[in-house]
């Protein structure tokens, strides 16, 4: 099993690095390839089972887009084939049609999923999140300078119960196509959502997966979920 972590030296804001560190502990047999910005992604030339992107700064997002824009067909083909793409924080925005800057300039994105994003710098949005994916309660946190709009229901990742969805009052959160999962939730997403982590392991072909430190990860998840289901402040 081969998992490619893209540009970990820049796609690593807000605790996102922990996702793949943790996933490595869940899948000790898997090969994790960390591709630096100075190199071309390995998934362009070889088969991988999963690709991970984490949060990055706005300028790095543009840098990544300029790297990948000539490889749209390859990425599209991999998604069609069912390769897992996990994208946390603002990283999934590159999959849309364009990203609009506060001055109105539009940065062309990959156009793989039909939606667009709009930056609001210096206005920042901070929110807890409670939602559902495939009957699983999903929890997390978002902190960002942008929203995404026009995401079709068939392309949405999760339903949003509390907190910001893809935009302020959106009923859904993130994007999904086959095994592409993109979410604004950031930080240790896989650690905070152990049920989803197990689901991902299953998608990778692991039968009855056991995840690292399962007892304590589950305990932390249950405590957090309990708090999130109470009447607490979500927008902060």
């Amino acid at each position: 099993m081969k998992i490619e972590v893209l540009y970990p030296e820049i796609c690593c804001l807000f605790g996102d690095k922990a996702n793949m560190r943790y996933f490595e502990m869940c899948l000790p047999e898997a090969e994790f390839i960390k591709t630096p910005v100075s190199e071309m992604p390995r998934f362009l030339t070889e088969d991988v089972d999963m690709v991970y992107f984490g949060s990055c700064s706005e300028s790095n997002q543009e840098r990544i887009l300029s790297r990948l824009k000539d490889h749209k067909e390859r990425i599209e083909a991999l998604i069609e084939k069912g390769v897992i793409f996990l994208m946390t924080g603002n990283s999934f925005e590159i999959m849309g049609n364009y990203i609009e800057k506060p001055d109105g300039e539009k940065i062309e994105a990959l156009g793989i999923v039909d939606f667009y994003s709009k930056r609001t710098i210096p206005q920042r949005f901070n929110s807890l999140f409670l939602g559902k994916f495939d009957e699983m309660d999903m929890v997390g946190y978002t902190s960002r300078f942008s929203h995404s709009y026009d995401i079709k229901e068939k392309d949405a990742f999760m339903s949003a119960t509390k907190g910001y969805g893809s935009f302020k009052d959106a009923k859904t959160e993130g994007i999904r196509r086959n095994n592409l999962y993109g979410t604004y939730l950031l930080g240790p997403f896989l650690i905070q959502n152990p049920l989803f982590t197990k689901y991902l392991c299953e998608q990778l072909g692991v039968k009855e997966p056991e995840i690292a430190f399962e007892k304590d990860v589950m305990k932390a998840y249950e405590i957090r979920l309990g708090e999130f289901k109470k009447d607490i402040k979500f927008i902060c």
Partner: peptide, 15 residues
């Protein structure tokens, strides 16, 4: 302060 009426984001401890 966050504990009073909200829930703290724990992403930072993983950095």
């Amino acid at each position: 302060l966050e504990r009073k009426d909200s829930s703290e984001f724990e992403g930072w401890i993983f950095d």
